[in-house]
């Protein structure tokens, strides 16, 4: 049987691909929730169980709560409150996005091999997943018009960075603090974006970032 860490990583990658191909906002948020849950589970499966302290477990639970419940929940609320249209409205079509996603996976496989990093254990897939997720997030931000999709892209980017962190560091707890900081940043970011979304929505009756251009003098 395939080991569980690979299964989780495959699911994370799938979430990236699906998010690039999904045309509905609601589906996108659900995918993000799944990805968040999976990403926050990764360190538990990498870390040998015995070395997990109580504090560590608490952190994981918190992370799971934030990544899989809180942030998607906020996004969901934002979506409902501002009555954004359900369609994603891509700049680059879904077909092309899917193919770009596949290209990203291939590219990150190539980069991982080229870097030839000595990773703990054989977690090459972890690095591939991390790079693809980061790239997928950036691509999502780049190729979608709505502000809320920018937030989602940013979230995915953060998931990727988090995974890179897990892949590259030895898992001592002071590192978690840093990541927790990142998470808090992100949470703040989401909230602020939520408010901004709200305002943009009130002001321009739309959340297309293209309208932000009108702000420039």
């Amino acid at each position: 049987m395939i080991n569980s860490i690979d299964l989780i990583l495959v699911l994370i990658l799938l979430a990236v691909l699906l998010s690039l191909g999904s045309s509905r906002m609601m589906a996108l948020i659900k995918i993000m929730a799944l990805q968040g849950a999976m990403v926050s589970l990764v360190p538990i499966f990498i870390e040998p169980q015995a070395r997990l302290s109580n504090g560590g477990i608490l952190f994981f639970q918190l992370m799971l709560l934030i990544k899989a419940v809180l942030i998607p929940g906020l996004l969901y609320m934002a979506l409902n409150r501002i009555a954004i249209k359900r369609e994603v409205e891509p700049l680059i079509g879904y077909h092309a996005s899917l193919l770009v996603g596949l290209g990203l996976v291939m590219l990150s496989a190539y980069i991982t091999r080229r870097m030839g990093l000595s990773l703990p254990g054989d977690y090459a897939l972890l690095l591939i997943t991390a790079i693809t997720t980061t790239g997928g997030g950036l691509f999502l931000m780049m190729s979608r018009t709505k502000a809320i999709t920018q937030v989602i892209g940013y979230l995915m980017l953060e998931n990727g960075i988090y995974l890179v962190g897990t892949a590259l560091t030895k898992h001592t707890h002071n590192i978690y603090l840093v990541e927790f900081g990142v998470l808090l940043d992100l949470l703040a970011g989401v909230m602020i974006m939520g408010i901004i979304l709200h305002n943009i929505n009130r002001a321009f009756d739309d959340v297309d970032t293209a309208y932000l251009e009108q702000l420039k003098d």
Binding site: L13, L17, G21, Y94, L98, L99, G101, L102, A109, A124
Partner: peptide, 24 residues
């Protein structure tokens, strides 16, 4: 017009599995 995307998703799934065999 969503059917091509549907088939491409199937394509992506398998292609993706192939890429994973590169590593695994």
């Amino acid at each position: 017009d969503l059917v091509p995307k549907y088939i491409l998703t199937a394509f992506a799934l398998v292609f993706f599995a192939v890429i994973l065999t590169l590593e695994i």
